[in-house]
Design a protein around this nucleic acid. Sequence first.
DNA 1: CCGCCATTATCGCCGGTAGT
DNA 2: ACTACCGGCGATAATGGCGG
Lengths: 607, 607
Amino acid sequence: MSIAGPSRDIGSPSPPLQRGKACLSCRRRKMKCDGMRPTCTQCTRGDRAEDCEYTDGSRRPRTLVLEEDIARLRARVQELENPQNVIPSIELYPPYTSPSTAGPSVAQTPYQPLMEPPSMSLSTSSPATSSTDSGWGFDGSPQRNVQQCLTVLAPHAAELGLFLNIDRLCAQNTPIFPGLHSMLMLWSAYLSQRHLDVSEQNSESALLSHAQHQISNALSVDSSTQDPQVFLHIIQTEVLISCHLQRAGEPLGARYHASAALSLAVGLRLHIKSGEAPSAHLFDFVGYSYPQLPPPLDGIEEKERVDAFWTVYSLDRCLGDIYNGPPGMNHAIMITAPWPSSDWSNEVTHPSLSRRSDRSLTNGYQGQSNFMTPSTNVTNINTVLQFLTGQDRDLSNDSPLGLQAKASVLFSEAASIAASYAADPTVGQSPAFRSRFATLGNLIQWFSASLPPPSSIIIAPGIIQPSNARQVLLTINLTALAQITLHRTFAPTHAPSNKRCIEGALRAVRALDGVSDPGPMIWTALCRVLHDELVRLRSQASSSSTADTTYASSLHATSPQAANREEEAEISLAISKIFSIMSKMTCPVKTFAVKFKAMIPALDSIN
Amino acid sequence: MSIAGPSRDIGSPSPPLQRGKACLSCRRRKMKCDGMRPTCTQCTRGDRAEDCEYTDGSRRPRTLVLEEDIARLRARVQELENPQNVIPSIELYPPYTSPSTAGPSVAQTPYQPLMEPPSMSLSTSSPATSSTDSGWGFDGSPQRNVQQCLTVLAPHAAELGLFLNIDRLCAQNTPIFPGLHSMLMLWSAYLSQRHLDVSEQNSESALLSHAQHQISNALSVDSSTQDPQVFLHIIQTEVLISCHLQRAGEPLGARYHASAALSLAVGLRLHIKSGEAPSAHLFDFVGYSYPQLPPPLDGIEEKERVDAFWTVYSLDRCLGDIYNGPPGMNHAIMITAPWPSSDWSNEVTHPSLSRRSDRSLTNGYQGQSNFMTPSTNVTNINTVLQFLTGQDRDLSNDSPLGLQAKASVLFSEAASIAASYAADPTVGQSPAFRSRFATLGNLIQWFSASLPPPSSIIIAPGIIQPSNARQVLLTINLTALAQITLHRTFAPTHAPSNKRCIEGALRAVRALDGVSDPGPMIWTALCRVLHDELVRLRSQASSSSTADTTYASSLHATSPQAANREEEAEISLAISKIFSIMSKMTCPVKTFAVKFKAMIPALDSIN
DNA sequence: CCGCCATTATCGCCGGTAGT
DNA sequence: ACTACCGGCGATAATGGCGG
Ligand SMILES: [Zn+2]
Ligand SMILES: [Zn+2]
Ligand SMILES: [Zn+2]
Ligand SMILES: [Zn+2]
């Protein structure tokens, strides 16, 4: 007999509704509610449709949601109360200072300043400076605060996609876009004390909300009035937001901001090599279009722009392709921005440009028209295309960001190939497809062989050497992901492809150590590939020698049996490594880990 | 012996403290707290007396306290927002009620009911009813207001990209996403009284900012909490924002929101035919990813989703390609959503779906995994690809939106072809390129011939017949734009291409009458093509018979001289028509017109 | 309606581990 | 040795909802 569970029998008297999901009216009446929206059956029958309200529980602990809400509202209140841009300013607790939880404060004293600007850090010094200062919400007020943040963030710059020049941001007189400021604070708070308690959650969402709000405001204001650097700050802010949301397990939001950032970057033509005459494009006519950034003032600004573009590009790539999401940009688009290279010292600081006194945007309308002036045929190089066709096999100049960008290109090309095959498998026969496939396959092989091996970077589990090496690890992962994506479709039927997948997965796992969170795609892909292979091996083993040995033996030249045993061990090992790493991650990843673990009961025996 | 208090004699480890009574610091540390006041023993020993705080206040469940807080804060926010921003502040003057300049509106009465959720229906009866209302900022409050707006907006729905079902929005009990509400108000205010005075400008930006703010909040909240329809509303809001910004001459912002909308739409998989089993994609593993909408409840919802996708798609297309901007999505992506068709009556309302009781999102984590379940090979049709390869030559079912979507596809394919040629002109030789070029050329010809001629729609200048015909006009424009984009590059050297360009431009001009503002790309393209042609003709005329008559005669079979004269006249006419239309447009267009006019001094003679 | 049980979501805090 | 940290577990408050 069954343990007499909740009697799953026929009529299924509907298993009791999950907690927090009964409608208010039913709750009050203590009757069974079926949770039907918008009006539950009980309420319908009782003809009190209007009373049928839901409290909408949400998965996450109710209180958390509430707390988040209150934080957000608080931020809003503050914003409204203090029209100039107050930053919600939490101080970074050096490890544990009482964060004094959700202050009931407000509740008690309804008239008090309601969350007065807590540590308004120097806002006093410049009282009325708040006028419409050239597009920045406010000028350099709490600068030292920024410095603190940046100190914390600097080592992680690569992971966060922090492409702005840190020294320059720190400089006393640099104005900082308030939204950016918030995000810097948010991240440094998070990174400086990895334990997330409630109050932190609160300030997080306050900061986040502030940043988003700043961006929307900035963008609906006439763009020609803004200091051009503001736009770079906005893009940076978007990147930070996107990373944050990804970490927080809100992929939809993460994508939203990533693609917004990309759209800004391209809108500002960061994908075009700076200084290059804009091509006489069909729509360039009389420049009725986007605002245009003035040329960069110096090498640093130029680097910032290039890095901005590639950062955003690879962010979009990495987030975009989940679920066949749009690659955001296809290769037909001409990207002429150079790859981010490690040394910008030798890039002369634009000698021809005397420091322009007026740095405002050239809004299309007022720029002199380059109408019909055919672009002085600079040989524009389609950066991405050149790389993909294998004409650019020199990685020596690439900065880590450059490598990452290239890896994203590989991945997105792989995804595109896979998608085009999925859409219409008959293309598999076309020579064009096959050559594209093969070219990319080789390119990936070469690329991943050219990357430094993880062992040279990971000194001990969790300890990695050069600080920016984390990015290299991520790159290794991405490359592996590209390889998997490319070959996955064919793995079940084509042994070499399968081998490539496993290979890639194992390589990625090896590089997993120092990386913080490579993102859902990588987790998923790795788990899936390894899982499938494990299943395949086991089923093969169980069906013993009846198995298709041809397939197996093509993987290893040695005795299939032994080889399988060995491979299985290796894979199991990899899987348990994944678990152990995952279990140290943030919440969404952990949840995933749990689900995944459940899929592999066979592993119990191992770990 | 002294009954003296708490000294529970030595050995007994003191029963666990009552819930909610441990001090915060102990809670965080997960250690036993003895609840001693003012500083618990743990904290005393750890020498962090100041951290030892208690969440006293109210015996009542913490959630209640929080809820109260949140209500209070909300009220406060309303209050603060109210003076300037309050939603219902602008009343729409139904066409001719005295617009009496500065709307005295609400600004006067800052203390009024604070706009708290007015119809909180019986909130008194239940204590905790104030909770977070299912992801909508607030529920159906000023519904009649919405109805007013929609009455104004309905005729313009197509231009605005209003894809939500209007009747349903009007329905008394539909909750409306507050941001959407703002945008509806903004647009209806704009449309109902076309003169923009200062006060309107103000409320415009207040409404805009409110809408954006709502969106950012909604997106940073756990997405699984939300009523799925909220997402559609968010997308709709983004579309409206994007249109607004475009009109306001803020193309960067417009693009930002367009691509954000696209990214949401795709993230929610609106591009996949509803009800279709999600393909067993590499990243579908254990569903570690985006939230997923529940299947639509009925035909209307389904139509909304399809329309949402295509609206966003073509918006992105139209805004995206300026300056080689990213097409947002390439064709490799598999779109299986059907084209928007005019009749949805025959689409059965998903018989297999009993009204799902739980309409909240299936967040990846909790859905049962479809891991490794190969998609039950539904023959998915790649909607776009099918159209582009000419296998879908039936336009009879397409709604105007459908036509527009197809036109956008044509345009974006054209842009992609042009871009790939620009990137590497040698592809011009490859047969694959040539066939792609030819196929598209034919398709465009056919498509534009199948559209109703402008003359059947434009009854008199400015008056068009079926209300949704405006969209058809836009479609004609877009198609022409596609044609121009495709052929432009080759026009200077290849007479037939040139002819196609002129042809397209002239056709577009004819359809320009009823359209409101086709957007910068169209203006630019038309002007450029016509201008260039005019220049060519004149230079040819001036160099008299020495001109390359072969080229000219291939355009017209008649005497080159006469033909040229005739064509020149036609073009001049078209140009001046453009001027006259442009001069009635909003500011940015007018500015453009001025610049353009300056380019064509030769026209002085004509007009 | 509402007393009262069954079911859970939450929260206290144990005890193993790492750092110092 | 001493303290912080944290995975988990068990106790318990808070709900769903039965049945009188
Ligand atoms: Zn109910
Ligand atoms: Zn109900
Ligand atoms: Zn304590
Ligand atoms: Zn304490």
